[in-house]
Design a protein around this nucleic acid. Sequence first.
DNA 1: ATGGATGCAAATGATTTGCAGAATG
DNA 2: CATTCTGCAAATCATTTGCATCCAT
Lengths: 160, 160
Amino acid sequence: MTAEELEFFPAASQGGPDYGERIRAVFEKHLVKQGLNLTKQRLRILDFLIAAKRHLELDEIYLALRKHGIGRATVFRSLKLLEECGLVDHVTTTKGASRFEIKLERPHHDHLICVECGNIQEVRWPQLEKIQEETCRKLGFAPTWHRHEIFGRCRRCAKA
Amino acid sequence: MTAEELEFFPAASQGGPDYGERIRAVFEKHLVKQGLNLTKQRLRILDFLIAAKRHLELDEIYLALRKHGIGRATVFRSLKLLEECGLVDHVTTTKGASRFEIKLERPHHDHLICVECGNIQEVRWPQLEKIQEETCRKLGFAPTWHRHEIFGRCRRCAKA
DNA sequence: ATGGATGCAAATGATTTGCAGAATG
DNA sequence: CATTCTGCAAATCATTTGCATCCAT
């Protein structure tokens, strides 16, 4: 396994200059195309996700923003819109709620999920992706997305 | 990718002589150890899973067996027991209910799930397993289980 | 004005649990 | 007899929707 084949990176690796602007532009474009509006609630939810730089549960977002009068349903519907335009992805955890993250300009990655502390570590496996694609092609299976999650105990929790 | 690296097999590849007997033996042993009993309901549920040779939803089992007076809760609790002793595994599908399958003596495999017809195709990726293990070791992550599912349209549905 | 957007509360759907009676060893 | 089991119904919990109202254009 070489360095190209295996790359780790923190969720915070996203960014660069004007990252937030680019994200908002994609969102607005999507909304306009659908005849929808970029409301302040939607913007606030998106900004919160960008700032978090990690996987958030719907309720984490809701609890943080309800002081601004934003309801759970709005968070839910905004996340849906954000997924529709490819800005956001979600991870279905074993038990409990899904976790959402910004994915624009972030390479595809898989997740190591600590069942102890809930922390999610990301890992890139370009080689695995290649094998998957080849397999699907051979089988005539047309993949739209995949989920590859390893559950266990992270370094810190494994020691404790 | 060689033949050893990539192996497909139908869910019905399980079996061989006395397969059902071996499964029942594992179950009974587990129950006895816990001071529990191998009741006729539990046996019926297990047998139904063995006979099915495919991924079943809890409700499929329930609907098939309720004519024998078996309740949903019993199916639920039996599946839990069967997972505890390693006889059964479940796949969390995108939407809807989990699907359960017998796993005794079946090699680990991943799933290609058709979002159109719900069919689940299985695939073995020994090479991928190896890479995963190595990565976890490097990161000090102690894996307990993983889930690797590709969603898309199967050959038949992709054509239609 | 008109259509989209929001928040609330209630519906949904899968999963899980409490409990009283039945079955088991 | 002392537990364990079971089925029912009801509780949970995340997710989703209906609806009256609010807001932006």
